[in-house]
């Protein structure tokens, strides 16, 4: 999910013996820790994947943060604030884990703002409606959980541990989203319409979060071997659909896919074709909110420069005394 846009990392000329020993550790489900020997390609792939994951959490604060000041009740306001604060915290956990691989937060921020590093496609969609808070919690966090639970067993220690921490907090996120959808679906006609509309807009982008089929991706195969990816994109997407369809039915909401049908033989839902061109456009920077999201992050960074500088200078002055 966070490997979108990754190319195969350049491998170094590493001794076959070391590579073999490394792979043997992975195969034994041993954890690789920060100063352990690792192939350069492993390090680079992890840096890209983890930093993109962290960027996703941070950028993800924006579409939801958009509704904090307009949440309809005190309770919803508190829950949304807590949730978005959690996302920021998750970003921090993962940035911190990524820094153990030898990259700085400053460098990662540069990569995000320049567009070199990507973040999850879903956050490039707007949230014009309160019901989107429900849809995001239910579908987007739901999809994220599918991806994150297996990553708790990723081969890189700091990443796995950050994932464990995150997963503990994430299920609250999905449940609060579904809770919002439930209130709306069982509310007035206008509220029900709001909920259905949000589902209509977020369903396909949520499916795209898992990334294109990686049947032919050598990159995916290598990541699987190194246990920094544990299931294929298609497997996770299918699992998500199978879990979510009954949840929608339970609320009397209709998933916007005419081809969605239970397949008795496979024991899974068949579903319609995903518009991968839309996904490619969004990843390339041509989605509805790409410019807006990055501009917000750039502004926060720029506007905050004097504050960061003040904090550093204050500390330097105090140290001199």
């Amino acid at each position: 999910m966070y490997s979108q846009g990754l190319k195969d990392a350049e491998g170094g000329q590493e001794p076959a013996g070391l590579l073999k020993a490394f792979q043997a550790r992975i195969d034994k489900e041993e954890k690789i820790e920060p100063r352990d020997w690792m192939p350069e390609a492993y390090r680079q792939t992890l840096i890209r994947q983890m930093s993109q994951h962290a960027h996703s959490e941070i950028v993800g604060q924006l579409p939801e943060g958009n509704w904090i000041t307009r949440a309809p009740t005190l309770k919803r306001k508190m829950i949304l604030l807590a949730k978005v604060q959690d996302e920021a915290g998750h970003g921090l956990y993962i940035y911190s884990a990524t820094e153990t691989l030898g990259i700085t937060r400053t460098k990662m921020t540069e990569q995000l703002l320049s567009g070199e590093a990507k973040y999850s496609s879903i956050f490039n969609y707007p949230t014009p409606s309160w019901a989107d808070m429900g849809a995001i919690g239910w579908l987007v966090d739901g999809a994220a959980i599918m991806n994150q639970v297996p990553l708790c067993r990723a081969s890189y220690g700091p990443y796995a541990r950050a994932m464990v921490r995150i997963c503990k907090e994430e299920s609250f996120h999905q449940r609060q989203g579904y809770d919002i959808m439930t209130s709306l679906a069982r509310g007035s006609a206008a509220q029900k319409k709001m909920a259905q509309d949000a589902l209509n807009r977020f369903w396909w982008p949520a499916l795209m979060m898992f990334g294109p089929s990686d049947k032919d991706s050598t990159h995916s195969a290598q990541s699987m071997k190194w246990k920094i990816k544990r299931f294929s994109n298609d497997e996770l997407r299918q699992k998500f659909i199978d879990a979510t369809v009954p949840q929608a039915e339970h609320l009397g909401l209709t998933i916007p896919d005419e081809d969605l049908k239970w397949n008795e033989d496979t024991g899974h839902y068949d579903f319609g074709d995903i518009d991968w061109q839309e996904f490619i456009n969004v990843i390339k920077g041509y989605g509805p909110c790409n410019k807006e999201r990055l501009r917000a992050r750039q502004n926060a960074h720029d506007d905050g420069a004097w504050v960061r500088e003040a904090a550093e200078v204050y500390q330097q002055k105090k140290a001199q005394l």
Binding site: L92, S96, E99, R105, A162, A311, E312, Y314, Q315, K318
Partner: peptide
């Protein structure tokens, strides 16, 4: 050990 963060001084 639970992770890391950035700050200007130990108080922060």
């Amino acid at each position: 050990h639970v992770g890391s963060l950035h700050a200007a001084d130990s108080h922060m």
